[in-house]
Design a protein around this nucleic acid. Structure first.
Lengths: 149, 149
DNA sequence: TTTTTTGCAAATACTTTGCATAACG
DNA sequence: CGTTATGCAAAGTATTTGCAAAAAA
């Protein structure tokens, strides 16, 4: 398994997860707990299918759609993040260094030009990981348009 | 239409596009040209379907799969970028501020912890765009593993 | 003329949804 | 017991692929 997170830390997180569930009136089911445990103790940024595999080692009958539903609610609960953006691919012909603001409500993508971006240096540890071809900064949130509704 | 890019600039880009095609032995077809023109002159980060719509205003018979194929080759040619990550969604239970390195060959995602990330301030223009909930820095490139093959 | 690219159609991959049953609190 | 969450099956969306015909060089 791919586990660098300590058991102790996972326990902490699980109990926080249970508290949050109670706070929000969500039920603490075996499936939710196992799905959250999997994501919280994984270092591999698993996709839904991969989460399912891991969860099924303990709960063999869990279905993929439960995994999707649960991952979505864990995200809403603020217990995990989605790496990346949206289901669709989006393309950008503007090659100047710039970032993007993505509205999580309407999906709109806005260009963000800012100085820090242009002069951004690669972190030192980058050498050990690989050769960087491009850097993108993404901001997620709610855009003005959606706010004023 | 969504055009802020000047005609002059688009012409420049199109002729660079043709040069690159010749350099690489790729044919300059109407479809490729129109697809590139669309992405290069758009400010809306279009998805494939949206590119198709625009392209069809000039070339009504272009098909969606050609758009996909062409966008992929334009990316390889270094003429456009994919906003986001990969087709699949990936989830991350680690909420500490950190970035990701994504290998464009094998798809592996590596965590990148670095000081600059923790202290990163939001660009001033952000106020005009929306309320930021989270910030993610993404690096794309080829990882060590893939390099040594 | 030769080779690449296209369009069509179909397959594949990923994610979401409706509904009856099961399980939490 | 009442209500929410799950599993199943099916639908919905996005992307990719094989192949014959069309078009570029």
């Amino acid at each position: 398994m791919n586990k660098i997170v300590s058991d102790e830390r996972i326990q902490q997180r699980l109990s926080y997860f249970e508290d949050r569930c109670k706070q929000l009136g969500l039920r603490v089911t075996h499936q939710r707990k196992e799905i959250y445990r999997t994501v919280a103790s994984s270092c591999e940024h698993p996709c839904a299918e991969r989460v399912l595999q891991q969860v099924r080692e303990k709960l063999p009958n869990v279905s993929l759609d439960t995994v999707y539903r649960t991952l979505a609610s864990l995200e809403e609960m603020g217990l995990l993040r989605r790496v990346g953006l949206s289901v669709k691919e989006h393309f950008d012909g503007d090659l100047r260094p710039h970032g993007h603001f993505v509205c999580t409500q309407c999906g709109e993508i806005y260009d963000i030009f800012f100085k820090e971006n242009e002069s951004m240096e690669l972190p030192a540890c980058m050498n050990e990981v690989g050769q960087v071809r491009q850097t993108q900064v993404q901001f997620k949130g709610i855009c003005k348009m959606c706010q004023s509704r």
